[in-house]
Write a protein that binds this DNA or RNA. Structure first.
Lengths: 342, 342
DNA sequence: TTGTACGCGTTATCAA
DNA sequence: TTGATAACGCGTACAA
């Protein structure tokens, strides 16, 4: 029963010989043209393939046809649940349309990004979905210039010619601030990681500053801190809460990581949630568990994943068209909980 | 600056022509044999490759050489942080040793598992790391019989010839129960998903029942529920807490999912953590946030990932040896928090 | 409906 | 140190 130890896979030719037919027929059988074969041949081929444990060699297949049927994904931080959720949507959409997804994690490291890019290019992925780290690397620009379909998640990247799929940041900020206002909060501290080169952070920050500048019942400030700098975060929050002001105060967090850090900080400062408002962009499964529940704005991650694949395949179907980059924005969903109930 | 829209990658032959050398020399240059080429040739090839934006075609490379340099991973639930953490370790280890990781998510669906298996086999992965769903599929058994190196994460799978890497379940249970005992709890409710075909769940459950049967200061029971059946869970916990008994009571959760569900249930029942003990296997980033912090037993996920790759490559380096399956167990790390402090 | 012959981009073998 | 040539496994004309 156990086969030889050589680990040589059966080839199309072997199947053909075993079945007593030609290579072409076997190729047709596995290439989705079974109808064109006689019932007899089909049975013989199926039998032989079964017997030999034959599997078409994708490498050879894509070498010949030029179609690898592979989509690459570059994700900045695989441990970020948001990235995983998008990846899940992507993968589903890819499979549904006959593609496979090759995922590479860069750990926010430009060197790893370059390395992985070379890898994906080597496997001749037909499209690339990227959750970019910072500046577009030379490798990436080169691929883009070659005309490889590119979709950026959540943020634009320099002047790169690529579609962008992500949250409608201005609308998301409006939704959040309107919610806080409606709940009776008047003073807001917006917490974000440094927006430096991440366009989505810039967009959110800009909208926050615009809204807070307008007045209209809300005032406050924005504060950008390096992720992981807990002391600075604690200090910033403490200062905000200690500052004089009659209106109830609330914290708005730019993403899931910040929400996590801010929740830690509030616990360290022994501040009650709700009394002081807390709200974050990105829904996480623990947000309902931290009493009395943390209000979030959930991103439609599956939609985003699907949209990314759509963009990619649209470009693949119209090769050489060079349509202008397009951006698709999706709205978030407000999940109100106790942390914004006074 | 912009290249043609055709998306045809430069080939080795084109580089050779542009550089005025032979294919062989270019192949040597990119195949890691640069030392054997004269400085002049090296420079000419480098220039031409640069100019043309050449990237070796992995497909063709692996077609010829038979080495795809690909490791496949099949994960049952990509949204499980434990899986992601292991995947992270795997990926690092793969890269460090010149391999790439192709990850497929099965969403616990046997049909998807089969499909993805066919895919990975098609790309001629040289090894497979699997977080199995249930019964070994026919496809999987076939690959194993062919001698494809296989590593199972966390659970054995029927009589499949494969290495297994995971937690030392008996030791983990002992650590957990000893901790609960030391903290003064005497009555334990062990919560798990149905162990049906998952060997690690069986192992944990068996050890729990053995220990609870021994007495030695601990008594209690085990309760297996379908994931997501919140009403049943609430009822089970309520019954446990209502039952007469002098000793302080504690819940022990078999994995992260169960911990999440149990935490929800305890909140619904308005039970204070600590007063009633709560402890879970698997560390999650929110466990410290749910007041007063949830005690966990963290799995050494990165170690597990690395070990899996080690096993795989060891078999790859000794082809045809058919060493007997081997199992590697790793110890967990206790993270004591307020939920087990009375 | 079935088979023959060639090429995809690369590496390996052998000769110079 | 270099180069010519034959595979690798498959798809796809084209011919029968």
């Amino acid at each position: 029963m156990h086969s030889a130890s050589s680990r040589t896979d059966a080839t199309l030719l072997e199947v053909a010989r075993d079945a007593g037919v030609s290579k072409t027929s076997v190729s047709r059988y596995f290439g989705g043209e079974r109808e064109r074969l006689s019932a007899d041949l089909q049975a013989r081929i199926a039998g032989a393939a079964q017997r030999l444990g034959y599997r078409p060699n994708q490498m050879a297949r894509s070498l010949k046809g030029g179609r690898s049927r592979l989509i690459g994904m570059l994700v900045a931080d695989i441990r970020n649940p948001f990235s995983v959720a998008v990846m899940h949507g992507l993968e589903q959409a890819c499979r549904a349309r006959g593609f496979s997804l090759m995922v590479c994690n860069t750990d926010n490291d430009p060197a790893q990004e370059r390395e992985h890019l070379a890898l994906l290019a080597g496997y001749r992925v037909e499209g690339l979905v990227i959750n970019p780290t910072g500046q577009p690397s030379h490798e990436l620009r080169q691929l883009a210039d070659q005309g490889l379909p590119l979709v950026l998640l959540d943020r634009t990247l320099g002047d790169l010619e690529a579609d962008v799929v992500g949250l409608d940041n201005a609308h998301a900020i409006d939704t959040a601030l309107d919610h806080l206002l409606a709940q009776g909060y008047g003073e807001v501290l917006y917490l974000s990681e440094p927006p430096s080169r991440a366009s989505s952070r810039q967009a959110r920050l800009a909208r926050v500053e615009q809204r807070l500048g307008e007045g209209a019942g809300l005032s406050g400030e924005a504060c950008c801190l390096e992720p992981g700098d807990a002391p600075a975060l604690n200090a910033a929050i403490a200062a905000f809460l200690a500052a004089p002001g009659a209106a109830p105060k609330a914290l708005l967090c730019a993403n899931g990581n910040v929400t996590l850090a801010a929740t830690r900080a509030l616990q360290a400062l022994d501040v009650g949630l709700g009394e002081t408002g807390l709200m974050g962009i990105d829904e996480l499964d623990w947000c309902e568990l931290v009493a009395p529940g943390i209000t979030t704005l959930a991103q439609p991650t599956e939609d985003i994943g699907r949209a990314a694949v759509d963009r990619l395949l649209r470009r693949l179907d119209a090769p050489g068209e060079r349509a202008p980059p397009r951006r698709s924005d999706y709205g978030g969903r407000l999940i109100a909980r106790g942390s914004t109930r006074r």
